[in-house]
Amino acid sequence: MATGARAGAATASAKPAPRTTGASKTIKLRIGRYRPERSDEPFYQEFTIPYREDMVVLDALNYIKERIDPTLAYRWSCRMGICGSCGANVAGTPQLTCAMYLKDVKRSPITVEPVENFRFLKDLVVDIEPFMEKLASVDPFIVREEEKPIERGEYRQTPEQLDMYRQQSQCINCMLCYAACPVYGHDPRFLGPAASALALRYELDSRDQGSAARLAAIATEHGVWQCTFVGECSVVCPKDVDPAGAIQQLKARAATRLMKSMLLPLATR
C-alpha cells in the first residue's frame, strides 16, 4: 500500500543517502496557484527542480518552498500518510502528496493542483470547513444512553467486535474521496463518502448506542441516499476504507431500520 511504502521512505534518514540519478537530472512541475491578494483567477506556474528517484511530490513542494518560492502555500504534516493533510490533485488524480513518488507519475510536467470540489483559499490550500461540518453531523464518536462512571472501568470489546469496524476506522479525513466524488461536485449538500464511512464505523461499534439519531441524520435526501455509487471514492482512498461500500451498507441499515419501525414499531428504539 502506498502508505506503507511512504512510511519506509520517511525513515530513510537512518539509511545511506539516496542515490542520485545524475547531478544534472531535473524534473518540471506545473503547480496550480491561487493568490487572492493579486488575482481573481487561479493560474499555473512551472518550476524545474533537481530530481531524485526517492522523491515524493511533497518533497518537491518542500524544495520549491524552501529554495525557490517561499510564498507557495500547501498543507502537510506527518509525511507518512497518517495525518491526511497533504492531499492534492497530482496529474489529474487526488493523491496524498507524501505517498506519491515523482517517478510513478507518467506525465511531464507533473501537474499539482488543489483537490477538486472545494473552494480554493490559496495555492493548494482549500476550504475544508464544509467537510468538517458534515463530519460533525454524523456524531463521529461513541454515543452512550447513559455514561458509566470511570471507576467502573472501560467499555470492553472482543477482537471480533473490533474487526467489525476496523476498516472504516482507518479513515484519516484526507478528503480525497470528496475530490473524486462527482455527486459531491454536483451538489455540495451531499453528506459525502468520508463522513458516511465514519458514521458506519460508529454504527458497527458494539459500544455505541447512538444508532437511531445517527441513522436519522444520514438517511436523508442529501445523506447516503444521494450516492449513486460511482465508486471512485474507494478507488482513490489511500487507506482502503472503501467509503462507497460503507454508504451502501448504511443504505441497507437505514432501509432495514425503517421496515422494522413499520412492522415492529415497539421493537425499535
Binding site: 487572492p36 473552494r119 476550504d127 449513486t228 460511482v230
Partner: peptide, 28 residues
C-alpha cells in the same frame, strides 16, 4: 463555526467532467 473566507475561489466544473476518467465514463 464558520471560517472567515476572503476571496475564496469557487472552481467551475466542466460540462465534460465525465470524460476525464474512464470510470466516470462507465458510470455515465
Amino acid at each position: 463555526m464558520a471560517t472567515t473566507v476572503r476571496k475564496a475561489y469557487v472552481p467551475r466544473r466542466s460540462a465534460l467532467w465525465w470524460t476525464k476518467n474512464p470510470r466516470y465514463l462507465l458510470f455515465q
